[in-house]
Amino acid sequence: MDQTTERMGCDLHSHTQASDGMNRPSENVQLAFERGLGALAITDHDTVAGVEEALQAGERLNMVVVPGVEISTMAGGTDIHVLGYYVDYRDPVFLERLAELRRTREQRNARIIDKLQELGIELTMEEVIKGLGRQLEPDESIGRPHIADALVLKGHALHLRDAFDRYLAQGAAAYVPQPRIHPKEACEWIREAGGVPVLAHPGLYGDDGLVREVIQAAAFKGIEVYHSDHEAPDELRYLAMAKEYGLIVTAGSDYHGERQGQVFHGDIGSRQVPMQVLEQLQQARAKS
């Protein structure tokens, strides 16, 4: 029997070294295979640089890999993340749009480093990149978790969460807001690249009124009901919201790998939906 028919679960949210994950894309796929999953989505922040390697690993293992992305946006003063599934990861217009988002992120990173230096912390972006322990590849995205790792390494924070709480989180000493597009624009980009837009982890925004506003303003096709940072009451609320707005129900671990002995946000496969959800996404894609 084909292994993909035996394996019934999908984890539709994972990150790799292409953004702020710790593993190579092929390593994520291997882990998903070992956990018995039937499908894994690669959804790095503002880049699709890890998709090709993941697809090749999926072919070797006879396992479904969904090409995806997670685009950083803002609405109502809150960071909102938009997942895109089955995007054409070679579309030149889409690639240039993502590149512009990464350039904006690089400018923000430079301002964070400046603020840290003003606080008396001797840290450079070269040191942050050196902390990766490897060469930075084209189209990879450097983010705050990498800066946090460098702060821990240099003894300015106890661990990743401490680095965010003291320096990098909103309201912290070295926080710098980043100009972002609206979720509606991200949904349009994803649809124009042949993909399906899904609202990521709504429970993290702390404002269901805003979640409803965003759903109504942007043409989402799905909502991530099951996420590593959602509790059971969150899942019930967003299941009801999915039914109300006719949205596809998705699930994702938001796996980033292991940092300083801790897995962020959840381990691969810790949140799953049935393989049939892939059919729903493909149908939504065909209708777009």
Rank of each mutant, 00 (worst) to 15 (best):
L132P: 03
E122K: 13
R60W: 06
E118W: 10
A150R: 13
T43W: 02
Q56D: 06
D46M: 07
A169Q: 09
L83G: 08
R166S: 15
S72T: 15
E100K: 15
Q117K: 12
V82D: 02
I121M: 09
L153V: 13
P92I: 10
M74S: 15
T47L: 14
A157Y: 06
A49N: 07
R144A: 03
G68W: 01
R161K: 14
N62H: 15
R134M: 05
I113P: 00
I113H: 04
E122S: 12
D162L: 09
G50A: 11
E122G: 01
R60L: 14
A49F: 07
Y89T: 04
V87M: 07
G133R: 04
L136Q: 05
A150V: 12
A75V: 14
Y85K: 08
D162Q: 01
L83I: 04
F94C: 00
G143M: 02
L151A: 03
E137H: 02
R144E: 03
K130S: 12
G84D: 13
P145C: 00
R102Y: 14
E59N: 13
P145G: 01
N62T: 11
R144I: 05
E52L: 10
K130D: 15
V66L: 07
N109Q: 06
I121L: 07
H45G: 10
V82F: 06
Q117I: 08
L151W: 09
I129L: 14
G155E: 06
L101D: 13
Q135G: 09
A57K: 11
R103P: 03
R102S: 06
P67C: 08
K130F: 14
G84T: 11
D114F: 05
R144W: 01
A75S: 15
D79H: 13
R134W: 01
V93W: 11
Q135V: 15
M63C: 08
Q107N: 11
M74E: 15
L123S: 10
G76L: 15
A157R: 02
R144Q: 05
G77Y: 07
L83N: 10
P67H: 05
L95G: 08
D114C: 10
T78I: 12
M63N: 03
D139T: 05
D162N: 04
G143V: 06
L153E: 09
Y89D: 00
Q117M: 07
Q117N: 15
R111P: 03
D139A: 09
H159Y: 11
S72N: 13
E52F: 09
L136R: 09
Y89P: 08
V65R: 00
L95Q: 12
A163P: 03
G76V: 15
E100D: 13
V82G: 01
P67D: 07
I129Q: 04
E140F: 01
L132M: 15
E52A: 12
R90V: 05
V69C: 09
N62W: 04
Q56N: 10
R161P: 00
A157V: 11
G133K: 03
R111F: 07
A54I: 12
F94P: 00
A148Y: 00
D149Q: 14
V65C: 01
G77P: 12
R102D: 10
A163R: 01
L151N: 02
